[in-house]
Amino acid sequence: MYAPEFDYYRAGSVSEAAGLLRKYPGSKLLAGGQSLIPLLKLRLAAPVAVIDIGRIRDLKGITVKGGTIRVGAMTTHAELAASSELAEQCHALAQAAAGIGDPAVRNRGTIGGNVAHADPASDLPAVLVALEAKLTVEGPDGKRTLDAGGFFQGMMTTALKEHEILTAIEIPAHSKGQGSAYAKFAHPASRYAVIGVAAVVTTSGGKCSAARVAIGGMVPRPVRAASVERVLAGQELSAENIAKAAGQVTESLGNEVLGDIFASEQYRRSVAPVWVKRGLTQAAERAR
């Protein structure tokens, strides 16, 4: 597999990258390359130029400050998976990152590249939606912050405007009594999510005070399962209550459920409650 010709520019800073994007219309940003390079090889993408932002130092790393976790866009999945801070304070993200692709892919792939690519079968979008992450983007008009819920607009489509670059993701660290998890039904070949469920459970006085559930993989963009969240709020986190709440997921899935030769739309709808239950159960365990 041989990619088509393109030019290559290496950006030393976000502003330089933004300038290059403007200068070369039809160019693509290159982060870890784990989504872009396969597309180039298959000649499904043919950018005029590739702008490498993978070396911008400011975009790397995980910092925790005042209850907020800031993850630089060029932080790799391996770094997310290995982070003890994330494991403690934002478990679903670390857990989901640990299940992306395989170790070599995780060493290259970045959270920013993954999220900006917005593949519906990707793991992180649903996780960020459930975690109510804020995404910082920088562009010609300066910086702005977007809710994860609004960032993902459809299959491979985000709220990023032309010449904007995703630079960081901010996530509220778990408070006491809060726990999160990611349950994934992985495709046996691609290992992408056929169904991915990110769940955040907040407990108070032995009951679920709030739950946030986002579904990915089976929908063009992650959806919040408000129907599940509603039913669980205020309930004890018993197996029965979790199962009952999870059973409500269908209502939140909407009309656009994906299907393919491995798992049809009907099947995904049928088993979605099981995966929601599993995500919630794990999150509830971590919340205790």
């Binding site: 597999m1 290559y8 290496r10 290159l30 390359g33 784990q34 390079i37 396969p38 090889k41 590739v50 490498d52 993978g54 395989d102 170790p103 070599a104 892919v105 060493n107 290259r108």
Partner: peptide, 21 residues
């Protein structure tokens, strides 16, 4: 994974990396 190499000691898939990287 047949193309796995170590880049600065860390395993990557060299078919999913550009030489310029």
């Amino acid at each position: 994974g047949a193309c796995t190499v170590l880049l600065d000691g860390v395993a990557i898939k060299s078919c999913t990396a550009l030489a310029v990287q």
